[in-house]
Design a binder for these strands. Structure first.
Lengths: 155, 155
DNA sequence: CAACCTGTGTCAGAATGCTGACATGGGTCG
DNA sequence: CGACCCATGTCAGCATTCTGACACAGGTTG
């Protein structure tokens, strides 16, 4: 009531709902990762490395949706604690390929179980069709937002 | 490749996609709000007050998905700059109902135009059916994550 | 080859948000 | 009424992330 059509109604805004969903998901993940002494970014980094070994700092940052500076801070801590290794010298250029250590892999395994439980809870009550529908719609939203990125950028 | 079934595959994880969508949306909003000297939380607060005048600090915090401490810092700045007003004394209890000033309303109007353009861009290429489908699915995800909140996840 | 542009790793400072803690007001029971 | 519990506003300290800046490696182009 009031403001219909004029602007952004929070009750019916997909953007607001997306933010809410993301917030709830993050809380749920933090809750199950906290007992393991791990943050969401921490977990994301390890999971990325497990699935794509040898990723660089910048690539990890993009994959975890943080800046490379933030990821660098995290990587230094992970390296110090023996979860990942990076060569002292760059094999080519300045890129330092990062890899999980056995310790990092073990740590990730426990985290993955926890995170999967959250993912499953989120999907509870959704049919397979709905899940692929959700997947398709989210991809479309991302693409629409990205291509029309900056009004004056390119062309 | 690798890890099929074992754990969380980032390529097919709805959670990861949700985080990506949220990240892209936030970037897009920051981009259009920056010229107005406004952050996303800043805007969210004003929009909440426009649609539900008299909200308290804690209620605003929940609506903007931050802690009441963070919202309090923002409210103090907004009050200092004349965008909102709060009574010096609580009419009842400790709750201080907040309201937009005319200046706050003018500021919000410009921001709303900017944010709506982002919302429209995100919805571009989606039919009305798809939009309501997205709405339904997101609500379901939120609900599934919230009710099984407790660690024991009801048996 | 030299000039440029892009991407990268890294250091430093600043901003933003969060956790912890406290006093207080209101409601609910006993 | 008194004891309790919960929610609120607020202060302080801390953590995380970001923005700004720099040097350098590789590719492209003249």
């Amino acid at each position: 009531m009031g403001r219909e059509g004029v602007g952004v109604n929070l009750e019916t805004s997909l953007g607001y709902l997306l933010k809410e969903a993301s917030s709830v998901l993050r809380s749920a993940m933090e809750e199950v990762l906290r007992p393991l002494g791990m943050s969401v970014t921490h977990y994301s980094c390890l999971e990325l490395l497990a699935q794509r070994p040898g990723l660089s700092n910048s690539e990890l940052a993009r994959g975890a949706f943080v800046t490379r500076q933030s990821m660098n801070v995290l990587l230094q801590a992970l390296e110090r604690d023996g979860y990942v290794t990076r060569p002292a010298e760059a094999p080519v250029g300045k890129v330092l390929p990062t890899r999980l250590t056995p310790r990092g892999r073990r740590s990730l395994e426990k985290a993955t179980v926890a995170v999967r439980s959250v993912e499953l809870r989120m999907l509870a009550g959704m049919t397979g069709t709905e899940q692929s529908e959700a997947f398709r719609i989210l991809r479309r939203m991302i693409h629409s937002l990205r291509d029309g990125n900056a009004e004056t950028t390119r062309s």
